[in-house]
Write a protein that binds this DNA or RNA. Structure first.
Lengths: 196, 196
DNA sequence: GTCTATATTTGGATAGAC
DNA sequence: GTCTATCCAAATATAGAC
């Protein structure tokens, strides 16, 4: 029996709660006191788990990037068909942005400038393996003439297009995630692949 | 003769300097003291020109949106050909993001969450006329089968794709703005319009 | 591992002299 | 329109008791 539900790992709980607060309010506008209150402890106690406030942001991002990479990796192995593989990657990134991981993912996408330079480089290095998966698949898509724009530039434009969806797209609205993913792929591959 | 160069309009100078600081450091990490020092006055004097710090951010955004709308409007009248008109809009937005207006534009794109709700609505309302120009042209492009994705969704994906370029694109690099604009249009219109 | 208490800094904003 | 001086609030972080 567990006397302290959810508290088996307070550090994990702090990271999840911080992700939500940082996403809702922004890192700078979130105080350590708010975070502490949200998990039911006092502000001083937070510093038993983290060295500094920035350390919390770093933890949010590193754990998020690990999840992102794992899921994208899995998606890239879902099919041998390049077109389907591309769709799987798009759908996965949109799921990351709008599913249970949304807070951490949004923070990772849009708040890395709140990190100091050293930590920024650390996060960037971690993101590299995530981006590599993308570039591999986009390279295949380009080689098989599924897409006709440069894979590198395409990925960067796509990063913006997908990331920006957090500001307007609502999964519970008219357009579901599959339909949105299909629209995004249609944008990349052109009308030829719209009718199957 | 002017004894006080650049100071004819101190308020304007403060807005321009604030745009740069807010873009470089972020709104929350920029102090009124820093801004004051950058224009050569003391922090108390700033509040002769603005009611509050948030008021400065609001001024940055409203003046920026006016410029954005003016320039996009001009671009939309540059040609009667839909394809060229679309390219002109893309090129103009990229110029706004990377030219002399870049600081204010980046702040307007990515830091509106630092505004209170009331001011957010104000800014959103101002942006509407800018977005209307886009939706008109994308609607024309869709009607003439130049693009095949929904104009509304397309614009939102495009907003993200273009806005995100501030994080990776450098106008002084290998790819010039015309080439980037061409890539973006190629993404929207598909391979059919890539070879002219 | 958490709390109490607090050190220390910083930032937005104001009042009144010049 | 700017400066001087300062108020006040809020925030990160620490030390030591429990």
């Amino acid at each position: 029996m567990n006397r302290t539900p959810r508290l088996e790992n307070r550090r994990e709980h702090l990271i999840q709660t911080a992700a939500q607060l940082f996403n809702d309010l922004g890192y700078e506008r979130t105080s350590v006191r708010q975070l502490a209150e949200a998990v039911g402890i006092l502000s001083g106690s937070v510093f038993h788990h983290f060295d500094s406030k920035e350390d919390i942001l770093l933890a949010v991002m590193t754990t998020t990037i690990e999840t992102m990479t794992t899921r994208l990796q899995a998606a890239s192995k879902a099919s041998n068909d390049v077109s389907e593989r591309l769709l799987a990657l798009i759908r996965t990134e949109l799921e990351l942005l709008h599913g249970d991981t949304r807070h951490g993912v949004a923070v990772t996408f849009f708040q890395w400038h709140s990190l100091g330079h050293t930590n920024q480089r650390h996060v960037l290095a971690m993101r590299a393996s995530y981006e590599k998966i993308w570039l591999d698949v986009l390279g295949q898509a380009h080689a098989s003439q599924l897409i006709h724009t440069d894979p590198f530039i395409t990925r960067r434009l796509l990063t913006g297009a997908n990331g920006w969806t957090i500001y307007w797209y609502r999964p519970d609205g008219r357009l579901d995630l599959d339909a949105l993913a299909a629209e995004v792929r249609a944008l990349l591959t052109g009308p030829a692949n719209q009718n199957r």
